[in-house]
């Protein structure tokens, strides 16, 4: 498998007035295409900052970040926006759907900013189909349940066919059953070849991934393959 992400001695610090806060102290790892990786750590460990940098929402202070073998350490704001649009799909804990907007229009949003969106109708319908929400296409976002909202968010992350999907605590606002449904969708997407990075502080959620990178105090504490990862299948008791 080819390498999708490679970071070398990545450091990040925030400067506020004269106070310097060091968040990442130098992390190095790589992720191959088609992997399902959980970045795990307690709050304040730096896992969110790492996700923001890997997801082109924030810039690193020093070190190198290669995406698809391109050095992306020093991109302009507009270049970062283009990467986010074209290469990355985000799934957030709080769903972040546009209020009072249809499922279709929510899923369409990334294509609105795409340089070559292609057949928008077809892409949106396929993404909604992938999360089993075709019957809800014309419903407004505020008419959906929490699980449905998160599935719309996943469809939105998928619609532009990105190389990488970030899921930031995707089950944090859901009960275990709907959380299970969301994890199953992510696992199915991974089986179809999508690279997924799951950011979580929960061991149980992290164990749905095939590999866990543990972060603590801005450094990688451990990086290992999950031998007995939790696999959710379509007929599982949990989903009923």
């Amino acid at each position: 498998m080819t390498e999708l992400i490679k970071v070398q001695d990545l450091k990040k610090q925030y400067e506020n007035d004269e106070i310097v806060t060091k968040v990442l102290h130098g992390v190095s790892f790589s992720i191959k295409q088609g992997e399902f990786v959980a970045i795990m750590g307690p709050s304040g460990s730096g896992k969110s900052t790492l996700m923001h940098i890997l997801g082109f929402l924030d810039q690193l202070t020093t070190g190198k970040y290669f995406f698809k073998n391109n050095d992306t350490s020093n991109l302009s704001d507009d270049q970062m926006a283009e990467y986010r649009n074209f290469e990355i799909g985000f799934v957030f804990q709080a769903f972040n759907l546009l209020p009072r907007t249809s499922v279709f229009d929510n899923v369409k949003l990334p294509l609105t900013y795409a340089k070559n969106p292609g057949d928008i109708n077809d892409k949106v319908k396929k993404a909604i189909e992938a999360v089993d929400l075709t019957h809800r296409t014309n419903n407004l976002s505020n008419q959906l349940s929490g699980g449905e909202k998160q599935r719309v968010a996943i469809a939105r992350a998928l619609v532009n066919d990105p190389a990488l999907i970030f899921a930031d605590e995707p089950t944090g606002n859901l009960d275990s059953k709907t959380g299970g449904q969301v994890m199953r969708i992510l696992q199915n997407l991974n089986k179809q070849g999508k690279t997924i990075i799951l950011v979580t502080h929960e061991k149980y959620t992290a164990e749905h991934a095939r590999r866990i990178i543990k972060i603590r105090d801005g450094l990688i504490e451990s990086d290992f393959k999950v031998t007995n990862h939790i696999e959710i299948n379509d007929g599982d008791e949990l989903l009923k």
Partner: peptide, 16 residues
């Protein structure tokens, strides 16, 4: 603000 953040996250530039 959250909507602005979301739009930027899915690829909107500042000029958008």
């Amino acid at each position: 603000i959250r909507e602005i953040g979301l739009r930027k996250a899915v690829g909107a530039t500042s000029s958008n």
